[in-house]
Simulated assay, not measured.
Amino acid sequence: MKRCFAQSVLACAMIMGLAGCTSTPPAAVTSDTGKTNSGKPPITKFKAYTQRFSGETLLTQSHATGHVGNVFFTHWKDGGEASLKLDEQGNFTINWIGGNYNYVGGPGWEHGDKNRVIGYHLNEDSGASYVTLYGWGYNKEMDHQDPAHLVEYYIIQRWVRTPAQGGEQGITFVSNGVEYTTYRTVRKEKPSINNTATFYQYWSKPKEQMPLGVDHKIIFADHAKAWEQNGWKLPDLNNFDASDDPTYQVFAVEVFLVEKSGTASGRVWDASK
């Protein structure tokens, strides 16, 4: 389910200014006109992504994207009450009240990487629809009538709603000791990182839900390989070609049509090295 972050944040920025669209202290908004702490040039195409916060940051507004330190985040909801608290070490807490709306948010990276290994430790999950690695791939050179030019992917870790309903089942494989089954679904003329589009969703669902309270690794290359064995190739994971968002990759908590309020908390890090 695509949430079109950049357009919404820009609209908010036009009305209130970026500072007015961000959270209250202890977060601080700093200028991002020079190089970032990592030495990489700043992102300039998508104005929403130039927001940079320092220290523990609480986000309660409807739409926000940016970085806390060097940790990228997304935070989006179409109603209701949900918040994301994030610090520069990737520690996060997401709270939601009720669930008759759609929320998605969490920490990660502003682009995907097939060789990335994602480490995470989940302390708490009191009923999110999905806890998942989530992201996009996009190839502007492909025929846009072909759903394969744009892919939204999910590597599910925990769930209360059955993912990939009605989808095409692919292979079953083992990654890092966990058995996953692959699925593919199609979204027709739905919001995406590149306007309204028809695109594929690729899914990996584990046989059993991942337990709380222990460290886990998601070896992204294993999932990309499994999808490709089905003939489901990922387009470019590291570009700024789309109209609304870059091809980000985040460890996301998604809430929609759940029965009760809840919390998910933990930490995310790059375990590639």
Rank of each mutant, 00 (worst) to 15 (best):
F5N: 01
A6S: 10
Q7E: 13
V9H: 10
C12L: 15
I15Y: 14
G17I: 13
A19Q: 12
G20R: 09
S23Q: 08
T24V: 14
P25I: 13
P26A: 14
V29Q: 07
T30Y: 11
T33C: 11
G34N: 15
T44E: 14
K45D: 11
F46P: 00
A48G: 09
F53G: 01
T57G: 06
L58D: 04
T60A: 08
T60H: 03
S62Q: 15
G66E: 08
G66V: 14
H67K: 12
H67L: 14
V68A: 03
H75L: 02
D78Q: 10
A82K: 08
A82S: 08
D87Y: 04
Q89Y: 01
F92H: 01
T93G: 00
G98F: 10
G99V: 02
N100T: 06
G106S: 02
G106Y: 01
G108T: 03
G108Q: 07
G108M: 05
W109L: 01
H111I: 10
D113C: 04
D113Y: 09
K114P: 00
R116H: 01
V117Q: 05
V117Y: 06
I118Y: 03
G119S: 12
Y120V: 12
L122Q: 01
E124R: 15
D125M: 10
A128Q: 13
A128S: 15
S129A: 14
S129R: 07
Y134T: 05
Y138M: 05
N139T: 13
K140S: 02
D143I: 04
H144N: 05
Q145R: 01
P147A: 10
A148P: 06
Y153E: 03
Y154D: 09
R158H: 05
W159K: 03
V160D: 04
R161V: 00
P163T: 07
P163G: 04
G170T: 09
T172W: 09
V174K: 15
N176E: 14
R184K: 15
R184F: 02
R187M: 12
K188S: 01
K190Q: 15
I193E: 01
I193D: 06
N194M: 09
W203Q: 06
A221H: 05
H223K: 04
E228V: 00
Q229A: 06
G231H: 03
G231E: 11
W232E: 03
K233S: 07
S243V: 11
T247W: 06
F251P: 00
F251D: 02
E259T: 07
K260S: 15
K260A: 15
G262L: 00
T263V: 11
A264R: 00
A264H: 07
A264S: 13
G266Y: 06
A271M: 08
K273L: 14
